[in-house]
Write a protein that binds this DNA or RNA. Sequence first.
DNA 1: AAGATATCAAAGATGATATCTTTCTCCTGC
DNA 2: GCAGGAGAAAGATATCATCTTTGATATCTT
Lengths: 262, 262
Amino acid sequence: MAAKPARSSPASRPERKPFGRNVIAFRSPTLSTQIVTQVRDALFAKELRPGDFLGTEKDLAERFGVSRIVARDALRTLEAQGIVEIKVGSGGGARIAKGNARLFAEALAVQLDLAGVTAAEIMDAQRAIECHAAELAAINATAEDHARLRGLLADAEAKIDDVPAFTRSSHEFHLAVAEASHNRALLVQLISLQHVSWPSQNPTLTPRVARHVLDVHKQLAALIEMRDPAGARRLMDDHVKMITARRVAEHRDKGSAKRDCC
Amino acid sequence: MAAKPARSSPASRPERKPFGRNVIAFRSPTLSTQIVTQVRDALFAKELRPGDFLGTEKDLAERFGVSRIVARDALRTLEAQGIVEIKVGSGGGARIAKGNARLFAEALAVQLDLAGVTAAEIMDAQRAIECHAAELAAINATAEDHARLRGLLADAEAKIDDVPAFTRSSHEFHLAVAEASHNRALLVQLISLQHVSWPSQNPTLTPRVARHVLDVHKQLAALIEMRDPAGARRLMDDHVKMITARRVAEHRDKGSAKRDCC
DNA sequence: AAGATATCAAAGATGATATCTTTCTCCTGC
DNA sequence: GCAGGAGAAAGATATCATCTTTGATATCTT
């Protein structure tokens, strides 16, 4: 399929890169999937970069020689995959998106849900990620990371009697540890798993548990600052195991409250 | 799932923010995103399960009181997110999909690419996943898993001189180890990361390296059969570190061939 | 003759196009 | 600053094309 040049834009738009590569359509002979494939491949081939202007619906339709609906279908798919962002209004249109971990997290949540993965499995995977992140954080964390962790600890301490706020702060602390690992792949995966595993309410969080959690977090931050990777990993391992036990118990209770089996 | 009967009388737009906070509104609440949200929420609420029939485009359009275009937009998005599968023809329509790890893997690949995550980061995350998977495999693997691993080892041995085939077989072995862990969350994440990290060609795979890889795989399978979690983890750790070194070197070479920085 | 199989045509569903109105944004001209 | 115009997506409607299932018919086999 040939991309038509279709020079219709007034001013010079150097962003208009034609996707010359003829890529084997996956197995779907629909026009919209061909467009999706071409754009995604152009992205992987670095012909397109985040922020690049892709064009309006009409532009794409003309460029690929298809109707506006087909371009629209392609944009819907690209948007759902987080590849493009679409703005309405004058000067709007489709642009290559910046990374959006949230979209990805939802994709993982959907897949895990569809596959019927249990809470125990998720927490176990999370443990693998978080332990590694803690270890790396003890190696790679910068002074800013240390400050960030200390700040979050102070924040949590102030909110220790407010269960929802403490839960959020705690959540942030775990994410901050992952960020301190300076490995974005780990971070993205943790975000995804937390999106599935982290409860909005935290029914078993008693003041006593909260105090214990905070103490562990403080120890963890200290180990990271002391650059003790093995210690940080070990502590995180125990910590996540404890969280897992509580989470699995909650899940079982919730399940048995609604229906018998789980 | 509530269908909104309100056919769009242009003047009347009653609710502009019907969504709570835990639901993530993608953009301005377009009709199609509302449908997407409802379907996804129904999925999470277990009102919809894989295989359930969702309806045809026309069905959805009537049920939600919108035009076919809107229903189509929603289905495009749901399809891209792997939530539904769409078949054409009589008896066709949209059904809730079974889990599809490939879609998810592509989503991760896109996100990591957009975020500019380096090969080293990806391999490091992969190491965390694979080490944990190896450990769990040594605990949870069944006799079938053991047989599967042995079969793949024999397969790889037969193909040791055929670089692409050996690479594929090797790839399968790693996946089989993750499957033997019986943790689908780990498996899905590994699939995603491999989708990004595993090269189609394997330029640095010399016969000598292949032999070494096969030996390590054999040792690993043995440790899993012997139910030695710590040993399996340690071996996998070393193994992935070796792979990482090669992969990062390849990436650097490829990068410097095209452009200076990376 | 009963059952299995092959073939063909109709129905149903998506794929795709064209054209239109509406609504939302940005930008420009006061 | 503010109102209005222009650009662009959102949405609606109608229509045709293409693909697939499905059911009916016909033929072959037992």
